[in-house]
Design a binder for these strands. Structure first.
Lengths: 297, 297
DNA sequence: TTTCCTTACGCCTATCGTAAGCATA
DNA sequence: TATGCTTACGATAGGCGTAAGGAAA
């Protein structure tokens, strides 16, 4: 296979149509340039340049080859420039996992900040629950997870990026819907849609502790995994629920949201998580320049 | 600049993720392959492969570079294959000049035959009168001309490719239009549209000799250069004319064509012309495989 | 201890520059 | 005779293979 250097030689001769000037442009002497062309021709098995001692011209084959030669060389040059931008995290791909709820709470702002600060980093987005994200982070399918708090895990680093209030979601016709503010005590002995203790463990435990602190005992009528499922059930009149404040941005019809005076102000936490040994420069750039604050918003 | 060989090495390692197997695939031993990768990385200033004594993996930069590397190598390979087809005339470009009349007489068949026999040769078509074509052939702007016969010219080769009859073109309402056949004598003392002795010299002299042989003396009411102009004037009732038989395929409204019994059967000749020292292989392939007969239709 | 990537070393090929050759205007 | 591409030749750099080195399971 011919080398890129030979292509550069050919391009110079084809453009100058003069071996002497082409050699000068390439910072070499004429004789090795002549040989480079001869060797390129012999490698291709095709005469590219007609040189009759007093004139230099491209053959039909040379004219056909020139654009290809230019394309190959310029592609090589731009590939070299491109790859150099990767280690700085300027350019690359970050696979981001997110939970259904985080799609409303943090994803829009994350995407906007990324587009502004690292526009040439491509984000591949995949919706998964927290446990799936941990699995995907571990086996390298994800670079970054947007997850609920988990127990510390070796090899996985996390950082809180967002926390928000819990608010009450009630069926529009619910008696308490006329109140301006609710309290956690209002949930006592009420039908309530609850989070699954297995697949939405974080929310489940958060609500259990919230109710326990004030001694409220709701009647759990259903267990669900995702916030949007919960809103569907609330709308159908099954009961009331506690959801992250960002759920209000979903604007579900037939569901009324109310502030809840609670013990802790903004207990619902969202974390960023990544594999501690992840070497993707774009991920580190993102943690540094896109999620720089300890609490992001 | 890195060499194509290094790219091939990188691609093999990136695909095998194992230096030993990659070296085997490249028909070389591991050590030089390791060095090739090291040198590629040092030329790019970027680490492409993470090799930790027991595992080989692409870095983010390596993953980003791999598609570019593949594209460069495959482009180089296909360019090499392509250029080899040029000298046989299988692939290339032929600039073809044609006169307005030849567009009807021979161009369609020429194009069809070329498309069938040398489909990868691109034909660049330019309509010019014979004298312009000779000029363009001489200075290399044209490879092939479709021209009327000319005086022999050093450096220009010609070959007859087509000859056809002269037929009469008359205004629809002309008294002679009711005749089945005309003779040249019918043109005697008639208003006739004539070819320019300068810009359509071949036709002019052909008609002069045609009339002279039978002693006919038409009244020349106008001199024109191109056949289609002539038909426009005939249609307007200015007079009758003698035109190549292929003019009938133009199907001009208001013009009637009639056979003419003439001394010579098919006197209107079309030649191919090319520069004797033209080295365009596609031209020679075309003369050999597309216009092979001495008289082409 | 085995696997497998890297370093060290000697050999060979390739490319360079200088100098001489040779064809054309 | 001058210009300009090609051939000849010696020096240098780069690549390959063999052999030894070193880290991880």
């Amino acid at each position: 296979m011919f080398s890129l250097a030979r292509l550069t030689c050919f391009i110079a001769v084809a453009e100058e149509l003069h071996f002497g000037r082409a050699a000068e442009r390439l910072h070499m002497t004429q004789p090795p340039l002549s040989r480079q062309i001869q060797q390129l021709e012999s490698e291709l098995g095709v005469q590219l340049i007609d040189r009759s001692s007093r004139s230099v011209a491209l053959t039909a084959a040379g004219a056909a080859f020139l654009p290809d030669a230019r394309r190959i060389v310029s592609l090589a040059e731009s590939a070299a420039l491109t790859v150099r931008r990767v280690p700085a995290g300027d350019l690359g791909t970050v696979a981001v996992g997110f939970t259904g709820a985080s799609a409303h709470a943090v994803l829009p702002r994350l995407l906007e900040a990324a587009r502004e600060r690292i526009p040439d980093v491509k984000l591949v987005l995949r919706e998964m629950v927290t446990s799936q994200q941990i699995e995907a982070l571990t086996n390298g399918e994800l670079d970054l997870g947007l997850i609920r708090p988990i127990l510390p895990r070796p090899g996985i680093s996390t950082r809180p990026i967002h926390h928000e209030r819990l608010i009450a979601a009630l069926p529009q016709q619910h008696p308490l819907a006329s109140e301006e503010h609710l309290t956690v005590e209002d949930f006592d002995d009420q039908p309530v849609v609850m989070y699954s203790p297995v697949d939405a463990r974080y929310f489940h435990e958060l609500l259990i502790s919230t109710f326990t602190i004030v001694g409220a005992s709701p009647r759990y009528v259903q267990y669900v995994t995702q916030v949007h499922t919960m809103l569907v059930l609330v709308r159908s009149g099954l009961g009331m629920a506690l959801v992250p404040a960002s759920a209000e941005t979903m604007k579900p019809e037939g569901v009324t949201f109310r502030q809840v005076t609670a013990v802790r102000d903004r207990p619902v936490q969202m974390n960023a998580a990544w594999r501690s040994d992840n070497s993707n420069p774009a991920l580190h750039r993102m943690m540094k320049d896109v999620l720089p604050q300890r609490e992001w918003i």
